[in-house]
Amino acid sequence: MTPFRAIAVFYHVATLNSVMAAADQLGVTASAVSQQLRALEAQVGTVLVTRQGRRIRLTEAGERYFELISDQVEGLIRATETMRGTRTTATLTIRATPTVSTKWLLPRLPGFLDANPSIDVRLDGTNEPTDFARDPVDLEIRHGTGRWPGLHVLPLAEESFVPVCAPRLAPPRSIGPEDLVNFRLIQSLKAQVQWPAWFAAQDLPTPNMARRLSFDRSHMAVDAAVLGLGVALESTLMMERELAGGMLVQPLRDAPAIRITTQWLVCPPANLRRSRVRRFIDWIAAEARSWQISQSGPNG
């Protein structure tokens, strides 16, 4: 009979990707963890774990074995905590840009916290990409093209880039694209779609960009448009609340939006073995689908 302790040790090693981290969490020595792993491999008759420096990698058999036992082990841990009258929490560390964090994720986060009371969340708002080998980050919502070899990458949602302004500057659908020359143009320098590309998509020459206001953060460009400082070109994902609340409007009569995906869920494939990561991905994917459906209406 395979001892449960060896199975539990394997579970912790697999979720933490480290023998040392598993030993610290279990309160035992690293050599004791390695001994339990060897005993388990002898029981199942195959190699489950290989070492890469200080980190470990599951073999194909190890990945399969983890899939078979993870739900049962997590259920036993929860049952034991219930009987003891205790509750342990796991911390999920998410990295995202300040704009995504404040404009889209933060308003939705209470839903995840309510549905997952055993998970604490740390939200790291920065534009710096994560070095997963060094930074203690479980999952990143990364801005860019989606091409990061070696990482697990999922699109968050397709966004629409549209010109917007405060309603006092121009009422909804009251001007044409050619009239934008009369307005100050606001842009985020890091946005995937810039004004010259937008005008080119409308077969129009780019107007004199001397009358412009530039920021290095999209949330600042959105806030500047709300203040009536000009017309901003931004993603509907980043200004959902401002559009829904009427603080921003789309002033153009006829101007197709540019639709692309610029936000991606990114993590090492091994991080998907962490229950907290899988739960968050399932939750945020459902939120993104709901948001996408809401954008398909007559004003989407």
Rank of each mutant, 00 (worst) to 15 (best):
V181A: 14
L68H: 09
T93H: 01
D223C: 12
D282L: 03
V47N: 05
A191H: 03
D216Y: 13
M1Y: 03
D216E: 14
L40I: 02
A61K: 03
S294C: 02
R211K: 05
E159A: 09
L189C: 06
R212C: 10
Q202T: 06
L227N: 10
Q192F: 09
S294Y: 00
T29A: 05
E60G: 08
R142I: 01
T145K: 15
A197D: 07
T59R: 11
G75D: 14
V44F: 04
T89A: 15
T15G: 09
T126Y: 12
T88I: 06
T261R: 03
F183A: 08
V44L: 08
P98E: 00
D71Y: 12
T86Q: 14
L272A: 13
M1Q: 06
S275T: 07
D131V: 10
Q35H: 10
A32W: 02
G45S: 01
R274K: 12
W104G: 05
D282Y: 00
V226E: 01
T2K: 15
V13K: 08
T126I: 14
T91C: 08
F132W: 08
L48F: 01
E242K: 03
E140M: 10
L16C: 08
F10V: 01
D179Q: 13
E81S: 06
T88F: 07
M83E: 13
A225C: 07
P117Q: 03
I77V: 07
A21V: 15
L151Q: 12
L109E: 01
P268Y: 02
R253T: 11
W283N: 00
F215T: 02
G45V: 02
L106K: 15
S34E: 12
Q202D: 04
N271Q: 15
L156H: 05
Q250E: 08
G53K: 04
H219A: 07
I260E: 12
Q36P: 04
T99G: 05
G245K: 04
L189Y: 02
V231L: 12
V249E: 05
D24Y: 07
A286K: 00
